[in-house]
Each structure stands twice: as C-alpha cells, then as structure tokens.
Design a protein around this nucleic acid. Structure first.
Lengths: 179, 179
DNA sequence: CGAAATGCCCTAACAGTGTTAGGTTGCAAC
DNA sequence: GTTGCAACCTAACACTGTTAGGGCATTTCG
C-alpha cells in the first residue's frame, strides 16, 4: 500500500522525509536536526527548506506516515483475530515498541492537525472505534489505557521486574467486562 | 509541609528552582532556558551553574518537588474520601491540569532517578498502591489509564466535544469491577 | 589586624540549534 | 539563445547549554 501522506510531497521531499525517519529511529530524537539530516543527505541544512517549509512540516510528514502505518496495522490486526480489542492493543503496543521515537513524536505534543495529511488521524482511530461497536467513550478509555501503558513502558517508568503482559491483560479484561 | 527536595539545596539554589517553576508554568517549556531563567533572576546564565550542576539537575529538582506535592495531595485525597480510587484519580487529574507544564516535565522522558530527591517517586506512588490493597498489577493499570487520560487531554488529543468526565468514570468503574 | 576562603557574580567563548537572504549552477523549454 | 526553474550553496542572525577564567565582597581563621 502506497502512502498518501508521502504522495502529497515532491519526490525530493519524500526522500528527505524517509531519511529523516531512519535518522530519528536509529539515532534518536536529538539526531533529528536540520543540519544532521542534511549531512545524512549530503547537502546543507538550508537546502532542505527548498523542499519542506520548516521543521514542523517535516515532523508533520513523519507523523502522517506514522498514522497511516498504524491504520494499516490496526486494520490487519482486527481482520486476523476474533477478539478485536485484544488484537488491537497488541498491535498498538507492537507499533510503539518497534519505532519508539516515531511513536513519541506522534504523541508527545499537541498535534498540528492543519499540517497533517487529511484523514490519517481518523483512519488510525477507526479500527478501535469499530471494535467497540461505535462506543466512543469505551474507545477513548481503551486508547487512554493503551497509550498510558505504552508511553510509561517506553519511558521506563515501571519497575524493571514489572510483568507488563499481565498488566495489559488485566486492563483489557476490565474494559471487556463493563458495558 | 516543607519540601525535603528543596531542603537538599542551598538557599540560593532553592530560589532558582522556585523561579524556574514559575517561569515554566507561566510561560511554557520553551521559556525554561538557562538564559531566560537567569534574566528572571537578574543574573547571567553562567551564574546559575554556581548553584546547580546543569539543566538536568534543575529539572530533577523541579520533578522532585512535583512528586512531593503529588504525594501530599494524593494522601489527602484518600484521607478525605471513602472511595479512594475515585478520589485519587480526581486528584491526579487536578494536579496535571493545574500545572500542565510541570506534569509534562515529570512524565515525558525517562526519569533520571539518580538525580531525584530520594524516595519522592515512591512516596507519590504509595497512596494508589494502598488503595488497591497492595495489588501492584491493578495499581499499574489504573496509573496507566490515568496518565493516558491526563496526557491526551493536556495534548488536546481528544475531540473538543468529548465528555472526558464520563470517560474517566467509565474507566474507573471498569477497574473497580474486575478483581 | 591581615590573610585566606567562600559565595556569588561577571565576560567571553564554543559548538550546537532553526531559519532566512541572496547568490550560483545546470538543465529544460520556448 | 534566452528564460525559467530546481536544487544547491555561503553567510549570517538569534537562540541554546556549557565552560574557562577573573573580580569583588563578606566571612572565617591564624
């Protein structure tokens, strides 16, 4: 599946965003500077501005790609399983653990929705909303639990000996049981 | 109640940390630079390093104070109510909404526990652990839900028309019901 | 009393950040 | 054959955290 978020960009901008993604995930958030990104591309920082308005636009492109991939992964997870909420939370956690720095970028600040590719945020949220039968309250509560678990895990806030698999199961069970 | 986190510091360092807190909360995270903090104090940035090792130490002091205040607020909340978990989650949300920038600072990155005032993290976590009767799994699940709700609210990730009070109640009910 | 130490501040500098103004090159189209 | 455009460049600005090294006043000690 091709990315509609990337297809909004010029070819050169696409290359820059993809390089940025590798840089972010491999070397961490501090490495995602315009100069280091440019160096990775073999050009100067100021040249990036020919292709992307500013760093916010670069980050918005990365976030858009992230949402698209989430939407795809979540749809597949539901499709492959008959316990959709469990499948979704597992996919949610997997996404975050496989690309922790992108996940942080996607969640740690208020979203500049005006800079995102249209619809990507909703597309990522749809599978969970479907899994709750359209119950927005329940979907939001499950999302909050999942995000809390994921980000606390990524930030190493749980004790090293915590059995997070168990905590996940207990949380999901709690949300399954109540109407 | 006097702060043990602050009492570990010299008087001048205390003043700097308190000024930093006001600056952070009033003008946001970008305002918490060594130069702007120094300007607020009427000195130069380099002078701050006489009193605090570096910016990380400053942030660790702020975080320690935050944990202490949480511990105090959470203990009071439990004391005043006979539905401790509901009281705790309300207190948790209130703390975050009253000082969103401090809350973000406290949670958005891995903790430098070696720089914190000893015991403050555990002290903030104790009331919830007590409220679950020592059930660490349940305490962690509730904490994850509460943090997720709070940080998604602070980052304006829910739709503007979302009824977050309802979402909170549903989530808490779910965690109350399951053993 | 004089000397030493301490507390607190300073200037100047370094390497890094995002960003802009203005200039150069090479290639494609009319 | 000139025009236009895409892609790059250098140089600069204002900011960031941080360090080296110096000054000055107050307090402590011999």
């Amino acid at each position: 599946m091709t990315s509609s978020a990337l297809s909004r960009l010029t070819p050169r901008a696409r290359e820059i965003v993809q390089t940025a993604r590798l840089l972010l995930e491999r070397e961490g958030p501090d490495a995602l500077s315009m100069r280091r990104l440019a160096a990775q591309l073999g050009i100067r920082a100021s040249s990036i501005y020919e292709h992307l308005r500013d760093k916010q636009a670069l980050e918005a492109a990365l976030i858009s790609v992230g949402f698209e991939e989430q939407a795809e992964l979540f749809a597949q997870a539901v499709h492959r399983s008959d316990v959709p909420i469990a499948a979704l939370t597992t996919a949610y956690r997997d996404f975050a653990r496989r690309q922790p720095n992108l996940y942080r970028l996607m969640t740690e600040r208020p979203l500049r929705r005006d800079l995102l590719a249209p619809g990507v945020e909703d597309a990522a949220a749809m599978p969970l909303l479907d899994a709750t039968g359209g119950d927005r309250e329940r979907a939001r509560a499950i999302w909050a639990f999942a995000h809390g678990m994921v980000i606390l895990e990524l930030n190493q806030r749980f004790p090293p000996d915590a059995h997070l698999d168990t905590t996940w199961r207990k949380g999901i069970d709690a949300f399954q049981g109540t109407p």
